[in-house]
């Protein structure tokens, strides 16, 4: 035992260094790898990607693949005319309202289905069937019923996002520790209190996963709805520029969408981190 303890790992390392004198030099040479932060590396990767893109655009030509250098003036031009801002505001509104509606209804129905087993067992199969159907299939009907304006687009976004939120909430509520429910009942908690104080917080990690999936779906829904209705929003800009082969301009709304997606997923990450404090228990118990 003592011999094993007396053989610490560092003893091996100097030997290795002595045997391979080049190793230390190599380590020094690549020392900048450790000094550059993750953000730095992300920027380097982005620059490399843009460089490759530019190189690829030279043989492809401006129409098929505009260089990132061409996109910058197009982007600025769209900001100057105000059309990018108007479109972004319109898209954000559709996205936010549809997504929030999906959160409220998805969580409410998920808790209801999970909390009242008879309701869950009855509806589960239909929810899964609906989830497996491409929601795009319903868009013509949604347009028929709601027209081409904002309400129709909100319904499309809601419909895209609600199912992953609902399904994850349902799973989370079903996974509530029955011992905690019994403990709460022993203090006289009634059904509504069990929903609010036990099932909902117990399901929260699942719900956040649902929110993340739902956000991505809502984003897709926003663009699909705008491409289909083609009246306003970033999707409308894309349909317009794509249809008239203004490819450099086409990339501006795409970039805005990417930025929106990044922002939403960062916000959800912060939300997840706030939950992590008590979540440590669940792995411990």
């Amino acid at each position: 035992m003592r011999v094993a303890n007396a053989l610490p790992v560092p003893v091996v390392e100097p030997v290795e260094r002595a045997a391979l004198p080049g190793a230390a030099a190599a380590r020094r040479r690549f020392a900048f790898v450790g000094r550059v932060s993750v953000v730095g590396w992300r920027l380097i990767a982005l620059a490399a990607f843009l460089g490759l893109w530019h190189l690829a655009s030279i043989p492809a030509g401006k129409l098929l693949l505009p260089s990132p250098i061409d996109i910058v003036p197009a982007f600025l031009d769209e900001i100057r005319t105000g059309q990018l801002l108007t479109a972004t505001a319109s898209s954000l509104q559709v996205f936010a309202v549809g997504y929030l509606l999906a959160i409220v209804t998805g969580v409410a129905f998920g808790v209801l289905m999970g909390g009242i087993p008879r309701v869950g067992e009855t509806l589960e199969i239909y929810v899964n069937a609906l989830n497996a159907t491409p929601r795009v299939a319903f868009i013509p009907f949604i347009i028929l019923w709601f027209g081409l304006g904002t309400p129709a687009k909100i319904v499309v976004v809601w419909f895209q996002a609600v199912l992953p939120i609902l399904i994850n909430t349902y799973a989370g509520v079903q996974n509530t520790d029955p011992d905690l429910l019994e403990a709460a009942r022993s203090f006289g908690a009634r059904r509504g209190q069990l929903f609010r104080h036990i099932m909902l917080p117990a399901a929260l990690p699942y719900i956040v996963t649902g929110l993340r999936l739902g956000a991505a779906m809502a984003m897709v829904g926003t663009v699909i709805a705008e491409l289909q209705t083609a009246l306003a929003g970033l999707g409308y800009l894309m349909a317009q520029f794509g249809g008239t082969f203004q490819t450099a301009k086409y990339f501006a709304p795409v970039l805005v969408l990417a930025a929106m997606g990044m922002f939403v997923s960062q916000m959800l990450k912060i939300l997840e981190r706030r939950l992590a404090r008590w979540k440590a228990t669940q792995t411990q118990l």
């Binding site: 011992d179 905690l180 019994e182 403990a183 009942r185 022993s186 203090f187 006289g188 104080h197 036990i198 917080p201 117990a202 929260l204 939950l275 008590w278 979540k279 228990t281 669940q282 118990l285």
Partner: peptide, 19 residues
């Protein structure tokens, strides 16, 4: 029904981990 007349202590503690 269960209520304030009796207090229950469980073997597995059963504290709410998020509180």
């Amino acid at each position: 029904a269960p209520g304030p007349h009796a207090g229950f202590v469980f073997q597995s503690f059963r504290l709410l981990p998020w509180r």
